[in-house]
């Protein structure tokens, strides 16, 4: 199959299977570093599914960015190399490839309801080990932590019971075992 010849550019490659990867990116905690990372993703057309940033060690002026992205294995490799190329980036670790990482997310889930649905919401929250962090006579705010799919399942269950809104932190990840990044 020939690409159209009226373009200055080669045809788009045929789609390959995309994978989801969690990357931990250790960066200098300086102004604009997040803009560099986000600009890289938008400029090169990569996906961001989740992004969290926070200072890790104040004294060392370091921040950790955890980003969940999808792409073919070749694109994922590109993303890592492109991140690594940014001057304020110290390290990029593919938590998914290393296979020995723990990923957690926190969500706050607001549910409004009365009567049976209210009781049911409380019962389910208990089963998911979600805590009640705010309550009125007609609403709850639950705090839940865990893997993203657990949170998604919980949110799905709350939907028919009067789900009002959800605020999620995005994913934080860390490697198992004694070694640091």
């Amino acid at each position: 199959m020939n690409a159209p010849t009226t373009s200055h550019y080669p045809a788009a490659p045929t789609a390959q299977k995309a994978e989801s990867h969690t990357l931990s990116v250790l960066v200098d905690n300086e102004p604009g570093v997040l803009a560099r990372v986000i600009g890289l993703f938008s400029g090169r057309g990569y996906n961001i599914e989740s992004l969290t940033v926070s200072e890790t060690e104040h004294a060392k002026h370091l921040s950790l960015i955890t980003v969940v992205t999808t792409g073919t294995p070749m694109v994922i490799e590109q993303i890592k190399n492109q991140l690594d190329r940014l001057v304020p980036v110290h390290r990029v670790v593919d938590m998914t490839l290393s296979g020995r990482s723990i990923e957690r997310e926190l969500a706050m889930v607001k549910v409004k309801g009365k009567g049976d649905s209210r009781v049911e919401a409380l019962r389910l929250a208990d089963a998911f080990r979600a805590r009640v962090i705010d309550a009125t006579t007609e609403s709850f705010v639950f705090e839940i932590t865990g893997k993203s799919d657990k949170i998604e399942q919980f949110v799905a269950l709350m939907l028919p019971l009067g789900l009002v809104e959800v605020s999620r932190t995005g994913i934080a990840a860390i490697a198992r075992g004694p070694e640091g990044m």
């Binding site: 080669p10 045809a11 590109q78 190399n81 690594d84 190329r85």
Partner: peptide, 21 residues
């Protein structure tokens, strides 16, 4: 490269570059 899927189809490729990306 031109058309990527027809680019040097039968070769082993070695690439030296200072930029991993």
């Amino acid at each position: 490269t031109g058309r990527l899927d027809a680019f040097s189809p039968g070769s082993k490729k070695i690439h030296v570059d200072i930029d991993a990306s």
